[in-house]
Amino acid sequence: MNAAMMWAAGGLALMVAEVLLPGIYLVWIGLSALIAGGLTWVLVLGGTAQVVSFVVVLSAIMAVIWKTGFHRRRMDRLNAPDNGTVGRTVLAQQFANGRGRVRLGDSDWQARLAEAGADPEPGTPLTVVGVDGITLVVR
C-alpha cells in the first residue's frame, strides 16, 4: 500500500469513527488526511512534505471553522430556553405579584408578567414573549 492510500484509509477511518463517536473534530482531521493523501498522490510528496501538507490543510480548515464561528453556532442553541419557546402558549399555574409558574408542554417553568397588572388565574392561557435566564416572560 502506498503512502497516498494510507492517508486516504486513515482519513476514511477517522470519518467512520466520527459517525460512531459523534462530535465535530474527527471529521475535520479525516478530511485533512484525505486531502493530504490526494496531494501525496498528485504531487508525489515525500514523508516530511506529507506531514506538512496534512498539518497545513488541517490548520486551514480549523482556521475557517474558527473564523466562521461554526463550532459555536452548533452548540450555543442546543438547549437554550428561548429556542422555539417565544410565541408559544403556556398555562398559568400560580402567580403572585407578577411572578409565578406556568406549564409549557410537560414542564413547569418560572415566569413573570411582561407588564404590571392583575395576576392571571390558574389555567389562563398566556403567550411567551421572551426569556430572561431560565424565567419565561409572559403576557
Rank of each mutant, 00 (worst) to 15 (best):
A3H: 01
M5C: 02
M6C: 14
A9H: 04
G10M: 06
G11S: 01
L12K: 03
L12W: 15
L14C: 12
M15Y: 06
M15V: 12
V16F: 02
E18G: 06
V19T: 07
P22Y: 14
G23Q: 09
I24C: 04
L26E: 05
W28M: 00
G30M: 05
S32K: 05
L34Q: 00
A36H: 00
A36Y: 04
T40I: 09
V42N: 03
L43G: 05
V44S: 14
V44T: 11
G46C: 08
G47H: 00
A49K: 03
A49Q: 13
Q50K: 05
V52F: 13
V56N: 00
V57Y: 00
V57E: 03
A60F: 09
A63H: 03
W66G: 04
T68H: 04
G69N: 09
G69C: 00
R73E: 10
R73K: 01
M75R: 12
R77K: 13
L78Y: 03
N79C: 05
N79A: 11
A80D: 08
A80Y: 11
G84L: 04
T85L: 05
T85H: 14
T85G: 02
V86S: 03
V86P: 02
V90M: 09
L91R: 11
Q93A: 06
Q94G: 02
Q94W: 08
F95C: 08
N97F: 13
R103D: 07
G105R: 04
D106E: 04
W109R: 00
W109V: 00
W109K: 01
A111H: 08
A111N: 03
L113M: 09
E115T: 15
A116S: 15
G117C: 06
E121M: 10
P122L: 07
T124S: 13
V129W: 07
D132A: 10
G133C: 13
T135M: 11
L136M: 11
L136H: 01
V138E: 05
V138A: 14
R139L: 12
